[in-house]
C-alpha cells in the first residue's frame, strides 16, 4: 500500500486548475491552485507530520478544522493547519517535528 513518499490522496477531477509548486522536506512538489495545504501535500506524499506520542505518521483526520491533527511546520518554524489553509506557491514545509533548539529561533 502507500509507502512513505507515496501520494495518499487521489484526484478525481478538477484537474484543469493552474499548477503551483511548493517544497516539502526539501523536495519540490506540484499542486493546483485552490488546493488546501493538506491536499497539496497528500496528493504528493503519504503524511503531514509525525505523532508526538507514538511512532506513527499522521495525515489529518477531520478536514474541517476540528481535530487539529493536520498542523504542519513551515521550514522557518511557523505552524499552519493544513486542512483549512490554502496552498500557496513557494511555501516550504517539513513533515518531521523540529529539533530541541526550536525555542532559540526567535
Amino acid at each position: 500500500m502507500s509507502r512513505p513518499g507515496q501520494p495518499r490522496f487521489m484526484r478525481l477531477g478538477e484537474t484543469g486548475r493552474t499548477p503551483i509548486t511548493l517544497t516539502v522536506d526539501g523536495e519540490t512538489i506540484e499542486a493546483l491552485e485552490g488546493d488546501s495545504l493538506l491536499v497539496a501535500i497528500l496528493t504528493a506524499r503519504g503524511r503531514l507530520r509525525r505523532s508526538e506520542f507514538g511512532p506513527e505518521a499522521r495525515s489529518g483526520f477531520c478536514l474541517m478544522a476540528a481535530c487539529q491533527d493536520c498542523w504542519v511546520w513551515t521550514a522557518d518554524g511557523h505552524r499552519l493547519r493544513a486542512c483549512d489553509t490554502p496552498a500557496r506557491a513557494g511555501l516550504s514545509l517539513v513533515t518531521e517535528q523540529p529539533d530541541l533548539s526550536w525555542p532559540n529561533r526567535a
Binding site: 502507500s2 495518499r8 490522496f9 487521489m10 484526484r11 478525481l12 477531477g13 478538477e14 484537474t15 488546493d35 488546501s36 491536499v39 497528500l42 496528493t43 503519504g46 503524511r47 505523532s51 507514538g54 506513527e56 505518521a57 499522521r58 495525515s59 489529518g60 483526520f61 477531520c62 478536514l63 474541517m64 481535530c67
Partner: peptide
C-alpha cells in the same frame, strides 16, 4: 485508528466535495 489514512466520514466527504479528491486508492 491512529494510522495515517484513517479519516472521519465527514473528512472523507470534504475531500471529495471541496477538493475533488478521494482519501485513498
Amino acid at each position: 485508528w491512529q494510522h495515517a489514512g484513517v479519516y472521519s466520514l465527514g473528512g472523507a466527504q470534504i475531500a471529495l466535495k471541496a477538493q475533488a479528491c478521494a482519501i485513498g486508492r
